[in-house]
Design a protein around this nucleic acid. Structure first.
Lengths: 260, 260
DNA sequence: TAGTGGTCTAGACCACTTC
DNA sequence: AAGTGGTCTAGACCACTAA
């Protein structure tokens, strides 16, 4: 595929608008000319003007509101996340009341301040099995959360545990927040499975349509997938988690010493 | 922007093809039906069929070759990169012949096996200044590289140094490869500026059109931007680098201990 | 030269927002 | 009801590829 084999009116209009946004003629939140305006101004068909707008939307520069107009995207706050977010001091103080409410188990969906959560028993897929050191298809506990900030979803986080590690603890309590902060590490620690070491793998890609819907992603927003393995000091894996993050809301930060 | 306010034929065709690719009816490298084929099969206009193809291309699932057809994207090899790539053992053995060829300085572009490089003196922008601890606008040495694997670019890496740290060393030699491996850390070490500690910041976004061109990115491929600060054991910053990576070619891996 | 992807026009209808 | 974005058709021309 050659890069821009034909540069037509659409790209030209897009370029003009892009420049206008870049040098502030349209600030964040500003309304762009309507498709019909552009049609007139540039003497092109509706189709072409529409394509220019769609192009900018795909780049994540603008957002279109159906029936209303196209607007320069607001720059929202970016969260800097580093190893510190897992610090012991953050979960040492967490309440850890154990719950055994078996009747309230299963795929109940619950909601509470900032996150939605489901807890389930599912067969382990390949990645999960490899990480937790169980057979493919073996039953594991899945804790699926959708994290929200200011009413907009920021990321999903799906944790997997070996059933014997978490049964009877608050982790299998579907009510969110109970085992929410620290990913329930305090609870694991109480069971003699104190987390000590982690490995995070990250990569970026475009979202699937389902993810775009769940995270309410504007077109043109990539996601960052994070795979996290948590081990005890002895090297036993106590949690495997997969997160899907709206790319524009996070910066990951990792400090490390140069190895020998 | 509502998610999929109207689901028309184009999305439907795209969904069909997506499913066909997913379950292997079209394997990697396979040629998809032509736009004109789809026009007939689905009884839609060329425009609509074309849109379906463009949609899949934007998702990064397929690649279109002008005048030839649309093909399922080959899955290329993914590089797993971790702190180990900076290991001392990797640059301890590097050749470090110093070069003083002032006449060959400036923005000469040189090429050699796997990377293209330019070395320049530029005024520090805000990020560079903050990282290196110099004034904005102060002169710094910029070493800009384009890394290639199998004739396709994988990432750019732009390093910044304080002039007094690198003048007269092979780092300012525009010929690539000389100070290539290890980012010239051996050279810094010889000057008593041995790198010891790093911080990497990562985030993903869609590429600018310039980046898409330089990295030969297919539409729908995000980039991961990496900012790296390298310090000596004493905490002195010796290098600040910014990389732009084709997202689909890398997985970053970071191990760390849970902090207190 | 034939086939293919990329772009465009002109006109139409629909879905949603705003008043 | 008016305005706006989203989608579609039918037909056209252009740019590139491959034989």
């Amino acid at each position: 595929m050659s890069p821009e084999p034909q540069t037509g009116s659409a790209s030209r209009i897009a370029a003009d608008l892009r420049a206008a946004i870049a040098d502030g003629r349209f600030g964040p939140g500003a309304k762009l000319p309507t498709v019909r305006d552009l049609t007139e101004q540039y003497g092109v068909s509706r189709n072409t003007a529409s394509k220019a707008i769609a192009q900018l939307a795909a780049e994540g520069l603008i957002t279109t509101r159906y029936g209303s107009g196209a607007y320069v995207r607001e720059t929202h706050q970016v969260r800097h996340v580093g190893p510190h977010r897992y610090a012991r001091s953050r979960w040492a103080a967490t309440t850890t009341e154990a719950h055994q409410d078996e009747s309230n188990n299963g795929d109940t969906i619950t909601r509470q301040g900032g996150q939605t959560q489901t807890v389930n028993r599912v067969p382990a897929d390949e990645r999960v099995a490899a990480a937790l050191g169980v057979e493919v298809g073996a039953e594991v506990v899945e804790r699926d959360r959708l994290m929200t900030s200011d009413d907009t979803p920021t990321h999903t986080m799906t944790s997997y545990y070996r059933p014997e590690d978490v049964d009877g603890t608050a982790i299998v309590d579907p009510r969110p927040g109970i085992a929410g902060r620290g990913g329930g590490y305090a609870i694991l620690a109480e069971r003699g499975l104190e987390p000590q070491r982690m490995v995070e793998d990250l990569f970026a890609r475009m979202p699937t349509t389902e993810e775009a819907e769940r995270l309410k992603l504007p077109p043109g927003e990539p996601v960052v997938e994070v795979h996290r393995i948590t081990r005890t000091a002895e090297g036993r894996v106590v949690e495997y988690a997969e997160g899907v993050h709206a790319a524009s809301r996070f910066v990951w930060s990792y400090p490390f010493d140069i190895p020998d």
